[in-house]
């Protein structure tokens, strides 16, 4: 629909524009988004720009406090902490994004099918989700890592598998609520095909909560990864993630507190930013707020 628009026609504001406008006025959320961007860029580019390798040891130096040469100090093997944090950040962020992606794919498909089909299919699918919900999933992730060894790919998948359940529930709730809306009935009575109804009427309206929940899932996945790495089952040395760096830092925190504090700061600040951004998005995308 790209006809020339009459000069007399007033342009409307879509709900997306409205949400975008509200989000931009939320200082905390904007700051969080900027911070995340900076953090992500630093983690991607940092290890290349750094004069040190993440596994480059300097045993003569040993653990040194922050200085002009090593901005955040070095660890017991004389490895540059900043480089290791940035490198670990890559892995932590990657785990967060990929595992969330996995959860998103499974959860959305599962929930949408259950919500849209309804009836017996819905009952069976959601029954399975209920059963899986009651499983001590974290223990299974630990178990998987023990049994199959520390495998990064497996970790993505395992963490994604923990989070998809909630995703599926949210998606199903959304689709179910939307299919009962009168505008979907109107679309049905216009004789539109299922595909058109799905992609023009259901998906755009279900997207908001999904975006919000996805943003809030990333920090919880990163937390899980840190947990797994902390008890020594995630990332294998000399690779690092923020969780494993904290675990290393804990062992020597009395003598070399910076080894605990800086990785901890990196993790906490990122989690903060993600949560604030998620909250901001929730406020901005809330359709009810748009009505008032």
């Amino acid at each position: 629909m790209t006809e020339p628009v009459d000069a007399t026609q007033e342009q409307g504001t879509s709900l997306w524009q409205d949400a975008w406008w509200r989000l931009r006025r939320n200082t905390l959320a904007v700051l969080s988004a900027c911070l995340l961007l900076v953090m992500a860029l630093a983690c991607i580019a940092g290890p290349w720009l750094s004069p040190y390798g993440y596994e480059e040891q300097n045993l003569l130096l040993g653990a040194a406090p922050p200085s002009a040469v090593h901005w955040l100090g070095t660890d017991g093997f004389g490895r540059d902490l900043l480089t290791r944090i940035l490198y670990g950040g890559r892995i932590s962020l990657m785990v967060g994004l990929i595992a969330t992606g996995v959860a998103l794919c499974i959860g959305v498909t599962w929930g949408a099918v259950a919500g849209y089909c309804g009836g017996r299919i819905d009952a069976v699918l959601m029954r399975i989700v209920d059963i899986l919900y009651a499983l001590p999933f974290m223990i299974f992730v630990v178990l998987l890592m023990v049994v199959f060894g520390r495998n990064l790919l497996l970790l993505f998948f395992a963490l994604g598998a923990v989070e998809w359940l909630t995703m599926a529930r949210i998606m199903r709730g959304q689709v179910q609520a939307l299919t009962q809306q009168e505008f979907v009935e109107a679309a049905l009575s216009l004789g539109l095909s299922q595909r058109v109804i799905l992609f023009r009427h259901l998906v755009p309206n279900a997207l908001g909560p999904l975006i919000v929940y996805t943003t809030l899932t990333i920090p919880s996945v990163m937390l899980l990864e840190a947990f797994i790495s902390f008890i020594g089952l995630g990332i294998q040395p000399p690779q690092s993630s923020w969780g494993s760096l904290i675990a290393d830092g804990v062992e020597t925190m009395e003598e070399y507190p910076w080894l605990l504090i800086y990785p901890g700061l990196a993790l906490s600040v990122t989690l903060f930013a993600l949560n604030f951004l998620g909250d901001g998005l929730r406020d901005a995308l809330d359709v009810r707020a748009a009505k008032d």
């Binding site: 840190a226 902390f230 675990a247 925190m253 009395e254 507190p257 605990l260 906490s268 604030f276």
Partner: peptide, 18 residues
């Protein structure tokens, strides 16, 4: 509360000890 949610147990524990 936000700090409590963003400060993972594995960091809070050692910090409290410290």
């Amino acid at each position: 509360a936000m700090i409590g949610i963003c400060m993972p147990t594995l960091l809070l524990g050692p910090l409290l000890v410290l």
